[in-house]
């Protein structure tokens, strides 16, 4: 963690991301702006999942639910003409946090496969709740009449401005995760992943730390959801579908589970491959699937670990 090759890779990625608006402007391809913005929002979601999955050893198969809850909070607020981002965004984080407390208390009573199944079930419950909300578009979803309004501070109805807000949010999220995992709390979380029984016998009531991590991850995902609603100008239940949660898990695995910046690399690689391969064939998953298997089998530590270690060997 934190070796020079990794810092180099991550630095290059962020430099590249910062240059995307310029590139899109010069080549008149706003599509790339849109693509990179979606990558970064999902990267925040993947970072939050990595906190509990990579560092906590808790494989949540329902993490997209919190992204959806965040997005729905923004969408529902906008529908009721509450458009201030100063209210919408904190509220999205808060509501996701409340759901994470409740779902965490239920699912953390179990471990392993049962934990995976319960988080999956709870998230699907949210998906069907979204489908049944006829007032807010039901199955079809709901267009966002207006993006979050930050008054005179910043105008995110401009696509480039929103882009840099998202980029800033990603950098802050990464920094936040770095501080968190190296803190006392982070050590407890990682110790519990490694050996929960031992943690209990040196005096840690492990559940409360796992629950806290679960809630922090849920709130971060809720924040990503608030960004996503603004990004797509639209909310729909599909954001919470279990396959979206699966995508997040794949991003974390692809980039490097339990490494700080791995999920960012994973989210970028995932969206990029999806885009490239689906351009080649409708059955892009036929290529993506084996690729993922190869990464998991041969690049322990994911893409980031693979390239970072390789450079270290070469150097």
């Amino acid at each position: 963690m934190g070796n020079r090759a990794q810092i180099l890779i991550v630095g290059t990625i962020f430099l590249g991301l910062a240059l995307v608006p310029l590139f899109a402007e010069l080549t008149q391809t706003p599509f790339y702006l849109d693509l990179a913005r979606r990558m970064m929002i999902l990267a925040i979601g993947a970072l939050s999942l990595n906190l509990i999955m990579g560092y906590g050893g808790l494989i949540s198969f329902g993490h997209a639910a919190y992204i959806g809850i965040g997005a729905y909070t923004v969408g529902i607020c906008a529908e009721h003409e509450l458009v201030s981002g100063f209210i919408q965004w904190p509220l999205a984080i808060l509501v996701s946090g409340v759901f994470a407390i409740i779902f965490g208390l239920i699912s953390l009573r179990t471990r392993g496969v049962y934990f995976i199944m319960i988080t999956l079930a709870l998230a699907q419950m949210m998906y069907f709740l979204g489908v049944s909300l006829d007032r807010y578009g039901g199955d079809d979803g709901l267009p966002l009449i207006e993006r979050s309004n930050f008054g005179a501070l910043v105008d995110i109805s401009n696509n480039v401005t929103l882009y840099f807000i998202v980029l800033g949010a990603l950098v802050l999220s990464l920094f936040f995760c770095k501080r968190l995992i190296n803190s006392r709390f982070g050590m407890v979380l990682q110790g519990t992943r490694s050996n929960e029984t031992r943690m209990k016998t040196i005096g840690f009531p492990t559940l409360r730390y796992q629950l806290t991590a679960f809630v922090i991850a849920g709130m971060m995902a809720g924040f990503a959801g608030a960004l996503l609603a603004n990004h797509t100008d639209f909310i729909n239940p599909d954001m919470m579908h279990w396959t979206r949660s699966g995508d997040l898990i794949i991003m974390v695995l692809l980039g490097g589970m339990g490494s700080l910046a791995g999920p960012v690399v994973g989210a970028l690689a995932f969206i990029l491959l999806e885009e490239l391969l689906s351009g080649v064939t409708e059955y892009w998953q036929l290529i993506f699937g084996p690729f993922l298997i190869l990464v998991v089998l041969f690049a322990r530590g994911g893409l980031l670990g693979f390239f970072a270690d390789k450079e270290q060997r070469d150097g």
Binding site: N182, S183, M199
Partner: peptide, 25 residues
């Protein structure tokens, strides 16, 4: 974890402040 980190974690269990989320342990 390194040997020192292993034992630090045990110290932390005893001294009671494990909800510090920001400072490098």
């Amino acid at each position: 974890f390194t040997a020192l980190e292993n034992v630090s974690l045990a110290v932390q269990a005893h001294d009671g402040h494990s909800f510090k989320l920001w400072h490098d342990a």
